[in-house]
Write a protein that binds this DNA or RNA. Structure first.
Lengths: 202, 202
DNA sequence: GTCTATATCTAGATAGAC
DNA sequence: GTCTATCTAGATATAGAC
């Protein structure tokens, strides 16, 4: 693997762990095993390198999500597969966590991949919901665009709850709660993709 | 207002805007109009000062939320009042945004107020949901603890979507989507606290 | 309680040799 | 393409005078 590539991957990792503000060129170089001169030869500086890294992470995230969206199964099942997929919860979302970084948000260029990612996720879930409505999988009365946004938000918010509590179980609880809400719109009890949470339903 | 107080409030503001990693003692002193010696006289250092500031923000947030939870009205209406309350959306959540800061999450002391805040919000919403179930406001089949966690997560995630897009409308859309989902569990169409979103319901 | 001086380390880069 | 040297600024304090 060449140096530029190692620098990008190291930056991806550090942005995930420490955010943009918390990531220094020196730390990137150390992790990539590259010198100062090497980094400034391949990239114009920290913002340039960060942009490449953020774009890469955004693409990878969308690709991972698309794998779940395009599985066989009902709309509910495919949405559940996305929301419940294996995650390193306590590390946070590689893309979403950057939305709290002041310098990322202040830079239209750095912010754009975030914006694209969430627009993509929302749009794909909206499509699945409309498909489900057409097939009679959901009862009428649901506004697909809003519900899709809410489901994406549940996942991002679930990371916040889990990291605040220092426990991945909080993620699980919030996401299953979101699916519980979605199931209230299913025309007949949806067969959940995973066994239900323990909490008894009143 | 005395110096210690001004230092705490300045720290609250900077933590909100820039996070813990992005906030320097010097910036705090500048904003508070206090000198180095003054800050280190009143506080042991940055972590100590930050702890006081985070606790303060957490208390204020819970108090603000409690105002909405204890309004008159149905459970749905009080939850909606909390979720739709006036917010400076693009600034993010003063408490939730700290959940993305690596040094806050790594410190049990700094993390505790976050954990407490979200536990409180979730518990209060769960109580409202149970109350609503007892009164027949919601149909059976809802798991209140999970749904409460999901609703808290929707709000936190909505901040992420809005800041990523650079637009407060994304917040609005996600939160209304969350309420749309909750309304699917209402025994009869809930009277929304605010006019419905424009999107036509299919 | 507050101030100024000082100290050490890192951030984020530029310059020029190899 | 990579390395080392150098630079200015800021982070995060401690020391001691006033």
């Amino acid at each position: 693997m060449d140096t530029a590539e190692r620098l990008i991957e190291s930056t991806q990792q550090l942005l995930w762990e420490r955010g943009y503000v918390g990531t220094s060129p020196k730390a990137i170089q150390r992790l990539a095993g590259a010198g100062q001169g090497s980094m400034y030869h391949h990239f114009a500086g920290k913002p340039d390198l960060a942009l490449q890294a953020i774009r890469r992470s955004a693409e990878q995230l969308c690709a991972q999500a698309e794998e779940r969206f395009s599985e066989p199964g009902s709309a509910y099942e495919r949405i559940a597969a996305y929301m419940l997929r294996e995650r390193e919860v306590l590390r946070g979302c590689r893309v979403g966590s950057l939305a709290h970084d002041p310098e990322v948000v202040a830079s239209p260029a750095l912010r754009e991949p975030l914006s694209e990612t969430f627009a993509y996720l929302r749009r794909r879930i909206e499509e699945l919901l409309r498909e489900g409505l057409d097939r009679g999988e959901f009862v009428e009365g649901m506004a697909p665009a809003g519900v899709a946004a809410a489901l994406v938000a549940v996942v991002q918010g679930a990371y916040v709850l889990a990291r605040s509590a220092g426990s991945a179980e909080e993620f699980e609880r919030a996401v299953r709660g979101g699916l519980d809400l979605l199931s209230a719109y299913t025309a007949r009890p949806a067969a959940p993709a995973e066994p239900r949470q323990q909490e008894e339903k009143t």
